[in-house]
């Protein structure tokens, strides 16, 4: 038994060794409560809706979210806006379509199946418009960084004055949580920047929290379904394991008795 435990822990350490990194002096992220964490984690609908508002009014000018479709906004597991509401949201965007029967490309109002429209026609123009840095697509951004939501949440609140004597390049800003502390994105969140439709006070911290949650949903729209199914699957497997365990013992008792 002791040997089994030894082996188990050795393997566990092995598995997680790739997560343990050198003690690079990194500022720990701001701690906060995330509704979607943990095995019973769920998204707060209010946070998702406010987060969408922040994305759409603040971030979408520079950041695309091209793997999302407008219909995702009313589908289960997300902000769950009403379908009428989402039709209006989609229609407020101009989508490139065509060619028509004259052979020309044209724009038309967005529809539910359309993907979110990119702010720039291509990556090169996005880089050119943002001082040589590409504003990353946000579809899976929350999974593309370690502790993604906490990182985004902290970064958005992490713009401070650089320490005395710190050399800051042209067009670069100082951020406590950015790797290397230099970031080409300026501070974009200020208190009351957005007027929330549900009346919540739009402090910088609130907006950072809401948009981080929204981005977590954008990266993992199936999170709630995954947790729900996971609970049922593991419960089923535990019950099955018990049944099989007792069957196994009953079977093997024949062997002991047949000595």
């Amino acid at each position: 038994m002791i040997n089994k435990l030894k082996i188990f822990f050795v393997i566990l350490i092995f598995l997680f060794s790739s997560g343990l990194k050198a003690s690079e002096k990194k500022t720990p992220f701001i701690d906060t409560n995330w509704n979607f964490k943990g095995i019973f984690g769920k998204f707060d609908r209010g946070e998702l809706r406010r987060g969408y508002q922040v994305y759409s009014e603040v971030c979408s000018g520079c950041h695309s979210i091209s793997q999302l479709s407008y219909r995702n906004l009313y589908e289960k597991g997300g902000p769950e806006f009403s379908i009428e509401n989402v039709k209006q949201i989609a229609a407020s965007f101009d989508v490139l379509d065509g060619p028509n029967s004259d052979g020309e490309m044209f724009t038309r109002p967005g529809r539910l199946p359309d993907k979110f429209v990119d702010p720039y026609p291509n990556i090169e123009s996005a880089i050119a418009a943002n001082g040589g840095a590409y504003p990353p697509d946000m579809s899976v951004l929350a999974k593309a960084r370690k502790d993604g939501p906490a990182y985004i949440y902290s970064l958005l609140q992490g713009y401070v004055e650089p320490p005395k004597g710190y050399e800051l390049d042209e067009g670069v800003y100082y951020n406590k949580y950015m790797d290397g502390n230099q970031i080409k994105m300026p501070n974009v969140l200020f208190d009351d920047l957005v007027e929330y439709e549900d009346g919540t006070k739009a402090t910088t911290e609130q907006m950072a929290k809401d948009v981080s949650t929204f981005l977590m949903w954008a990266a993992e729209p199936n999170l709630e379904e995954r947790h729900k199914l996971g609970f049922r699957v593991i419960l089923y497997l535990v019950i099955l394991a018990l049944l099989v365990y007792f069957s196994m013992n009953r079977l093997w008792s024949r062997i002991e008795s047949k000595k």
Binding site: Y236, L237, I239, L240, L243, V244, S247, R250
Partner: peptide, 12 residues
């Protein structure tokens, strides 16, 4: 016991 195990297994 065996029947129950089979049945549950088949469902799974």
């Amino acid at each position: 016991l065996y029947t129950a195990s089979y049945a549950l297994g088949a469902v799974g």
